[in-house]
Design a protein around this nucleic acid. Structure first.
Length: 821
DNA sequence: ATAGGGTTAG
C-alpha cells in the first residue's frame, strides 16, 4: 500500500472537524437549514421563518403532521410551494402515499421539485413500477428529471435486488444523458453490484470517464460483498496508483475482504494505514479491525482492540462474540454476552444468534433456553435468522423435538431454516425425518443449495444404500452443485460409507481443489474398508502436496493402521504428528493409539501407553483398552481398564456388556452376573442392535429376535436351513458370547441376531449373484462374523456389512478384515 | 424539498 507517505495532518483534521451529528436542527429558534443561501433567496423570509415551517421541520410522526396541517391552512400557507413540497415529502415519509398524491394532484403550478419529491415518494412506498410510470408522466408533463431522481431510484433497485427495474432505470438515465455523470454512474455501479451482477458493475465502473473516491469505494464494496475479496484488495492498491487516498469508508469496506482471505499480513498493513491516517480510533474502523483479526485466527488481538475501544457499538460486541464462536471458544463468547448485558447494552438479533451459536457449540441446553427467553423479550419472533439459530441450537443440544416444533410453527421459512432442520434431523440420527424434510422442501419448490446437500448427504451415508447415493449424486449434478468442494467431499464420504470405495476414489481423483476434509474423507474411507496400505499411500501423496494434514487426518491415519494391523506405521505417524506438524494429540488420538496396540495383542504396551499419557485418560481410551482385552481374552487388564472406565460414568451400557463378555468367554459366570446387577442398579442399557438392508427402494430394519417383519416366518425358516448348511461346511456356533442360558437356547438366540436376519432377508429377496449390503449400528458380533463367512461360501454371494467401525467384505468364505477387527 | 459508498450474522 502506498500509505508509507503518512497522510497529511489535514486529513485527520478535516475528519475531526466533520461533526457526526448537527445539533442545529434541534434548536427551533434559529433559521432552519431548508436551503442553500442562494435558493433561500427566492423564498420570502416570512414563509421559511414562519412558526408552521419550524413545526413541520420538527414533525416526527403522522399524528403530529395531522395536527400541524390546520395551522398551515389557517395561516394561508397551503398555497406556498415550500409547504406543498414539504407536505408531500412528509406524507411519503410516514408511508401515506395516497395522502401525498392528494396534496400533489390538485396543484396547478407544480414546481419541478414537487415532481421530484413525489417521485421519491412513489419509489419509497409503492412499487418501482409505479415510480417508473411516474417518470414517464414527468416527461409527458415536460418536467426534466434531475440526477438525484435516478440515484434515488437506483438505490431502491439495489436495496430490493431488482435487476430488471434497475436496468430500465439505467436505460432511462442514458436517455436523459446522465451516462457520464459521476453521481449517476456510481449509482449504476452500486445497483449492479447489489443485484449480484459484479461483472456488469465493473464494466460500468471501467467505462466511467471520471471516478472519484465514492466511485472507488462503491466498486470495492461490490467486489468485497460479492465474495471477491482479492479483487477488492487489488482495487485498493489501484485506486492509490490513480491518486485516490483511501478514506475510512474504504477501510471499513475492505477489512471484511482482508478477513475473507484470512491473511494476517494483509490485515496488518491495512491496520497500519488506518493508524497513520488517523482512522484507527473510529468506532466502526476499530470494530472492523477487531473483526478482521478474529477472522484471521488472532482473536487475542481482536480482544486487545476491543478492550481498548473508547466507545463500542452493539456491532462491536456482536463481532467480538462471533470472534470467540468462530475460534472455538464459546465460553468466552458467553462471557462477552454476559458482560454486555451487565453494561446495559441492548442485544440485537445478531447478539442472540451469536449467543445461541455459543450454547449450541457447548451443547448447553439450559443456557440455550435462557437465551431463548430473550427472543420473546426482544420481540425477535419474526426475525427468521434468529429463529433459525434456535432450531440449530436445540438440534445441537439433542432436542430435535423442540427444534422441529419451532420449525413447524415458523412463518416465512427460508433456505436456512430448511437446511438447519434437515441438518438437525441428520445429526440426531433421524435419517428418515431428514429425508422427508428434504423432499418436502423440494415439493414446495425450494431449490436445495450446497448447505442442504451437505446436510442430506451424511443422512444418506448413514443409510448406506447405494441406490440412494446415486440418486442424490444425480440430483447434485442437475442442480449444478457438483463443483462445490463441500458437496463433493460429502459425496466421497458417502460413497465410501455405502461400500463403494472405488467410486469414492474415482470422484476424489476428479476433484481439483481438494480441501483437507476431502483428503480426510478418502483416507478414512480406505481405513474403514481395511485398506490400510491404500490409506497410507494417499496420506504420503497428501503430504507432498499443498494441503497440510490436520488432527482429523491423523486420527484417520492411525485408525487405518489399526484396522489393518500396521502397528509400527501407526506409531511412526503418531510421533510425526507433533514433531512435523505441531499438532497436539487429543483424547481421540490416544484412544486410537490404544486401539492400535491393543487390537494387535500388544496389551501390555497399550497399558503402558495409557499410564504415560500426558493428559488424564478418558472414556474412549479405556474403552479401546477394554475392547482389546475382549479380543485377546485378557481378564486382568480388562478388569483394570473397566474399573477406571466405570469411574468415568459412561452413559452407554455397551462397556458393561463388553466386560461381561470377557468374563463369559472364560466362563466366569458369577462375574458375569455381577456386571449384570451393576448395570441394573445404574439403570444402564445396551443400545439394541439393529441391522438394515435395502431392497427395491425400501429400507428394512431388523432387531435381534424381532418377529415384526411381514416375512418373519420365511426368514426364520430359511435361516434354520442356512445354519444347517453352514454347519455341514464347518461352522461351529460360538455360544460363549451369550450369558447364562442353556446351550440350545443359546443357539436359538444366536440365530436371531439382527445381522443374520438381515442377511437371510437379503438372500431370500434377491436374485442369485446379487451382492447383499447390510448396515449395523453396533459392532458385528463374533459369531455372526464367522457365520457370514460361511454363508458367503455356501451361497456364493458377496456380502458387505458395514458396522459401527468399519466394513467387512465377505466373499468365498473369507472377510476383507482378515478376522482382524 | 434534493445528491452516489461502509462494519457483525447459517
Amino acid at each position: 500500500m502506498r500509505s508509507s507517505s503518512v497522510p497529511p495532518i489535514a486529513i485527520v483534521k478535516a475528519h475531526n472537524q466533520t461533526p457526526l451529528k448537527s445539533s442545529s436542527i434541534t434548536i427551533p429558534s434559529s433559521p432552519l437549514p431548508f436551503h442553500t443561501l442562494s435558493e433561500r433567496a427566492h423564498i420570502p423570509s416570512h414563509v421559511y421563518k414562519h412558526p408552521a415551517a419550524v413545526l413541520l421541520e420538527l414533525c416526527t410522526s403522522m399524528k403530529e403532521l395531522h395536527q400541524i396541517i390546520p395551522l398551515v391552512i389557517k395561516n394561508g400557507l397551503y398555497n406556498e410551494h415550500l409547504f406543498q413540497t414539504k407536505l408531500v415529502s412528509l406524507f411519503s415519509k410516514y408511508g401515506s402515499i395516497n395522502e401525498a398524491a392528494r396534496v400533489f394532484e390538485p396543484i396547478d403550478d407544480k414546481l419541478d421539485a414537487l415532481y421530484h419529491t413525489m417521485l421519491k415518494g412513489y419509489a419509497k412506498n409503492s412499487s418501482l413500477e409505479t415510480a417508473l410510470a411516474f417518470l414517464c408522466r414527468m416527461r409527458y408533463d415536460d418536467v426534466k428529471p434531475v440526477v438525484y431522481n435516478f440515484t434515488y431510484l437506483l438505490k431502491v433497485c439495489g436495496d430490493n435486488a431488482d435487476l430488471k427495474r434497475g436496468k430500465e432505470i439505467h436505460g432511462q438515465l442514458i436517455t436523459n444523458s446522465f451516462a457520464a455523470n459521476v453521481f449517476a454512474m456510481t449509482g449504476v455501479v452500486n445497483m449492479y453490484a447489489k443485484c449480484r451482477q459484479i461483472d456488469d458493475a465493473y464494466k460500468m465502473f471501467d467505462r466511467m470517464p471520471e471516478r472519484d473516491l465514492v466511485s472507488w469505494n462503491t466498486i470495492i464494496a461490490g467486489f468485497s460483498q460479492n465474495g471477491f475479496a482479492k479483487k477488492a484488495l487489488e482495487l485498493v492498491l489501484r485506486m492509490q496508483d490513480e491518486g485516490q487516498r483511501p478514506d475510512s469508508i474504504t477501510l471499513v469496506t475492505v477489512l471484511p475482504a482482508a478477513a475473507d482471505v484470512g491473511l494476517l499480513m494483509v490485515g496488518k498493513s491495512i491496520h497500519g494505514y488506518a493508524i497513520r491516517a488517523g482512522f484507527a480510533k473510529l468506532v466502526n474502523i476499530s470494530t472492523a479491525l477487531a473483526d478482521m483479526y478474529s477472522k484471521c485466527g488472532s482473536v487475542e488481538t481482536a480482544r486487545l482492540i476491543f478492550d481498548g475501544m473508547d466507545q463500542k457499538t452493539v456491532v462491536s460486541w456482536n463481532s467480538m462474540m462471533d470472534g470467540y464462536v468462530q475460534n472455538g471458544e464459546p465460553e468466552k463468547a458467553i462471557a462477552v454476552f454476559e458482560k454486555m448485558l451487565e453494561e446495559g447494552i441492548d442485544p440485537t438479533g445478531v447478539t442472540i444468534m451469536e449467543a445461541l451459536h455459543a450454547c449450541a457449540d457447548l451443547g448447553d441446553l439450559e443456557r440455550g433456553k435462557f437465551v431463548h427467553k430473550f427472543v420473546d423479550q426482544l420481540n425477535l419472533g419474526s426475525d427468521i435468522s434468529v429463529m433459525n439459530s434456535l432450531i440449530s441450537m436445540y438440534s445441537k443440544c439433542k432436542r430435535v423435538d423442540i427444534a422441529s416444533d419451532i420449525f413447524n410453527n415458523l412463518n416465512g421459512r427460508t433456505h436456512v431454516s430448511w437446511n438447519a432442520m434437515i441438518l438437525g434431523y441428520a445429526q440426531n440420527g433421524r435419517v428418515s425425518e431428514a429425508l422427508n424434510c428434504f423432499s418436502e422442501m423440494k415439493s414446495l419448490g425450494m431449490k436445495p443449495d450446497s448447505f442442504t446437500m451437505v446436510s442430506v448427504i451424511p443422512a444418506l451415508a448413514e443409510l448406506s444404500v447405494t441406490r440412494h447415493a446415486k440418486w442424490i449424486h444425480g440430483l447434485i449434478i442437475r442442480s449444478c452443485l457438483d463443483k462445490n468442494i463441500f458437496v463433493t467431499t460429502a459425496l466421497v464420504d458417502m460413497y465410501s460409507k455405502c461400500g463403494a470405495i472405488h467410486m469414492a476414489r474415482k470422484l476424489f481423483d476428479m476433484i481439483s481443489d481438494r480441501h483437507v476434509i476431502t483428503w480426510n474423507a478418502m483416507i478414512d474411507g480406505y481405513g474403514t474398508h481395511g485398506l490400510g496400505r491404500a490409506a497410507l499411500d494417499l496420506f504420503d501423496k497428501m503430504k507432498k502436496g499443498a494441503v497440510e494434514p490436520n488432527d482429523i487426518t491423523y486420527l484417520s491415519v492411525i485408525s487405518a493402521c489399526s484396522h489393518s494391523g500396521l502397528v509400527d506405521e501407526g506409531l511412526r505417524h503418531f510421533k510425526s504428528m507433533k514433531q512435523d506438524y505441531g499438532l497436539e494429540p487429543s483424547m481421540d488420538h490416544y484412544g486410537a493409539m490404544v486401539d492400535l496396540l491393543g487390537r494387535a495383542g500388544r496389551i501390555k504396551e497399550a497399558w503402558d501407553f495409557i499410564e504415560n499419557m500426558p493428559i488424564s485418560p478418558g472414556i474412549t481410551v479405556y474403552g479401546a483398552m477394554l475392547g482389546a482385552c475382549k479380543i485377546h481374552k485378557n481378564i486382568e487388564v480388562g478388569e483394570k481398564a473397566a474399573k477406571k472406565l466405570f469411574e468415568l460414568n459412561p452413559d452407554e451400557g455397551g462397556y458393561h456388556v463388553l466386560l461381561a463378555n470377557i468374563y463369559a468367554s472364560t466362563s466366569k459366570w458369577s462375574k458375569v452376573a455381577e456386571v449384570r446387577k451393576t448395570m441394573e442398579k445404574k439403570g444402564l442399557k445396551k443400545t439394541p442392535g439393529c441391522s438394515v438392508v435395502e431392497l427395491r427402494n425400501e429400507v428394512h430394519s431388523f432387531y435381534s429376535g424381532s418377529t415384526t417383519h411381514p416375512q418373519s416366518k420365511r426368514i426364520y425358516a430359511f435361516l434354520e436351513e442356512l445354519v444347517y448348511e453352514i454347519k455341514a461346511a464347518g461352522y461351529v456356533p460360538d455360544t460363549n458370547l451369550i450369558l447364562d442360558v442353556e446351550d440350545d437356547v443359546q443357539e436359538q438366540l444366536l440365530n436371531s441376531h439382527s445381522e443374520k436376519l438381515a442377511i437371510a432377508f437379503g438372500l431370500l429377496n434377491t436374485s442369485p449373484g446379487t451382492t447383499i449390503h447390510v448396515r449395523k449400528n453396533l459392532r458385528v458380533c463374533g459369531d455372526c462374523h464367522n457365520a457370514t463367512k460361511y454363508i458367503s461360501l455356501v451361497t456364493g454371494r458377496e456380502i458387505i456389512v458395514r458396522d459401527m467401525q468399519r466394513f467387512h467384505h465377505f466373499k468365498n468364505g473369507i472377510c476383507s478384515c482378515g478376522d482382524y477387527w
